[in-house]
């Protein structure tokens, strides 16, 4: 019976294989290209790069030339740590509350908290700028962190809710009927079960904040420059090869962080669940 479909099945394998290859090339190609170009010895972005050198990395490290990039990177890390840290606390707590509320009200609250993932955050960025101007405060790193917090909170909520789904009510009931206080139950049962989810969420929130453009675009200024906005400015004004070196640093550090998180909390599995 299989014979009948032999030509069609061969075509299927060819089409799926070809499209899959194109998809993988589109996914991975740019990462490799940007790494290769960062080692060029020329002041141009030609590919394949001409010659090998570390001059753009040296230029990137040099505080005299690239001090403003360092400052922007430091601001981004500061904001990302604050936003991810607070998001982990408040979203983790909110996930505990949402766990027992599967009715329409609970679902509506959950949908509202998750909405920053789908709504155009550029609109929110503008709205946040208008709010700060209306209440007459200068957008400092504090306000940038607050803006990022709203955008990255859903990541923690999602990963924590996923790990909470493994926490059965009987487990909590038996802990209570054995005389454990709620705090003790939380410390000894709930927390160990959700800890990997919290960690994965905190990591995703940190990375999302580091990469945030829509909010930083409106809330950052010369004084509170953020890394993605600074790099974007460098791309728009002149095709500075230091952007390639900065990209190389980001590629390597992101890869290492992802490897570490995979080892610690099996991140890949967790976000593809």
């Amino acid at each position: 019976m299989r014979r009948i479909h032999a030509p069609a099945d061969a075509l299927y394998a060819a089409v799926v294989g070809l499209l899959g290859l194109i998809a993988l090339a589109i996914l991975v190609g740019p990462v490799l290209v940007v790494l290769a170009v960062s080692f060029t010895s020329e002041p141009s972005l030609r590919f394949p790069p001409q010659g090998f050198s570390l001059r753009w990395y040296a230029a990137l490290i040099d505080p005299a030339q690239s001090g403003h990039i360092h400052e922007a990177a430091l601001n981004s890390v500061t904001v990302a740590l604050r936003a991810a840290g607070v998001a982990t606390l408040v979203s983790g707590a909110a996930a505990l509350w949402l766990r027992t509320r599967s009715g329409p009200a609970g679902r509506a609250v959950d949908l509202a908290f998750m909405s920053p993932l789908v709504l155009p955050m550029l609109s929110f960025g503008l709205a946040a700028l208008i709010l700060l101007t209306t209440i007459r405060v200068r957008p400092t790193l504090f306000w940038l962190s607050a803006g990022h917090l709203v955008v990255v909170a859903p990541y923690v909520l999602r990963t924590t809710a996923a790990s909470l789904s493994q926490l059965g009510q009987p487990l909590l009931d038996s802990s209570a009927s054995l005389g454990a206080s709620r705090l003790y139950t939380f410390r000894r049962i709930t927390l160990p079960i959700i800890a990997p989810g919290l960690a994965a969420g905190a990591f995703l929130a940190f990375m999302a904040s580091m990469d945030n453009v829509p909010v930083s675009l409106f809330l950052s200024s010369a004084r509170t420059d953020m890394l993605p906005i600074r790099l974007w400015g460098m791309i728009e004004s002149s095709l500075d090869v230091r952007v390639a070196a900065a990209s190389g640093v980001l590629v390597v550090s992101t890869t290492l962080l992802l490897l570490a998180m995979n080892r610690l909390v099996n991140l890949s599995r967790r976000i593809s669940r």
């Binding site: 996914l27 991975v28 740019p30 990462v31 940007v34 990375m207 580091m210 990469d211 453009v213 890394l227 993605p228 790099l231 974007w232 791309i235 900065a246 990209s247 980001l250 590629v251 992101t254 890869t255 962080l257 992802l258 991140l267 890949s268 976000i271 593809s272």
Partner: peptide, 11 residues
């Protein structure tokens, strides 16, 4: 997942 975590500006 690696490209997902990599900065949009870099990509």
């Amino acid at each position: 997942i690696l490209p997902l975590l990599l900065s949009v500006v870099v990509r």
